[in-house]
């Protein structure tokens, strides 16, 4: 047996599983999306793109995902910077605090937000007590609730993506900037931010795709009225049982996500290799 055969044998079971149980099913979905009673058809796509309701769902998905991505980047950058620059003990604690929610089931985390945001929950009550909100103020079943819950779910991805890049920046660059007369914020803006941009971009692309394809958190916090694309797919699969239409919607999501994923894979390929 040659070395090559040995390595092939090692990789083969995994390769086979992914080919048969991952790529083939995705191919099946693509085929089903153009499946009609009389051969191939684009009817499911034209139904989706020709219906104001579904275009609204699509627009809400894109809009919310953009908002969520921007907020995650705005919180994630300073969080990652602080994580990279504190002492090793504090860093370990911060990493644990970021990973703990990341590794907790999305369902459980969303449940926490359901309790916090519900009519008699802590947050609306607090806002009412401070006089910032009226009696009828509600957060559940609003887009704000979706954004809060999703930022919580996705912030760890953003922070860890940026952390990976920031921790490789030589701190002497910042010290040089400071001693040569830059203010602290100028060092951040002219040295740290440009150097950590690959991390910010990779994190943003990742957060955007994950956000656009989530339905558990949007469903539970936004309710059935505020549907996003992934929720609409889930509904077509489990409630209306219109699988070809569900497949067509998934293809729309897939196409949108590929546009975002291709630069992401390019950006991160050097890290994984």
């Amino acid at each position: 047996m040659s070395d090559r055969t040995e390595n092939l044998l090692l990789a083969a079971p995994g390769l086979l599983l992914l080919a048969l149980a991952f790529f083939l099913p995705i191919g099946q979905m693509l085929v089903l999306s153009v499946d009609g009673p009389e051969g191939a058809t684009l009817a499911h796509f034209s139904r989706f793109l020709g219906d104001g309701f579904y275009l609204g769902v699509l627009w809400r998905t894109v809009r919310l995902s953009l908002i969520i991505t921007v907020i995650c980047a705005l919180i994630g950058f300073p969080l990652a910077y602080i994580m990279a620059r504190v002492g090793p003990r504090a860093r370990l604690w911060l990493i644990i605090l970021v990973i703990l929610p990341l590794m907790t089931s999305v369902v459980v985390r969303t449940f926490g937000w359901v309790v916090l945001l519900s009519r008699n929950g802590l947050i609306p009550e607090l806002l009412r007590d401070m006089g910032l909100a009226g009696r009828t103020f509600a957060l559940m079943q609003t887009e704000t609730a979706i954004v809060i819950g999703m930022v919580h779910v996705l912030l760890p991805f953003m922070a860890l993506s940026i952390l990976g890049v920031i921790s490789r920046i030589d701190t002497r660059l910042e010290e040089a900037g400071r001693t040569m007369g830059c203010s602290f914020l100028q060092t951040i803006r002219t040295i740290v931010l440009p150097l950590s941009l690959p991390g910010v971009v990779a994190g943003s692309l990742l957060v955007f795709t994950l956000s656009a394809s989530s339905f558990v958190t949007p469903n539970l916090l936004g309710g059935p009225r505020l549907q996003v694309l992934a929720a609409s797919i889930y509904k077509s699969v489990t409630q209306t049982l219109d699988w070809p239409f569900a497949a067509a919607q998934a293809v729309v999501l897939f196409a949108g996500i590929l546009l975002v994923l291709i630069p992401y894979v390019r950006l991160t390929a050097s890290d994984n290799g």
Binding site: A247, A250, I257, Y264
Partner: peptide, 13 residues
């Protein structure tokens, strides 16, 4: 990298 929902629907079908 591929969102689970796309895989999930493919696997079901």
């Amino acid at each position: 990298v591929l969102p689970t929902i796309i895989y999930a629907i493919g696997m079901l079908m």
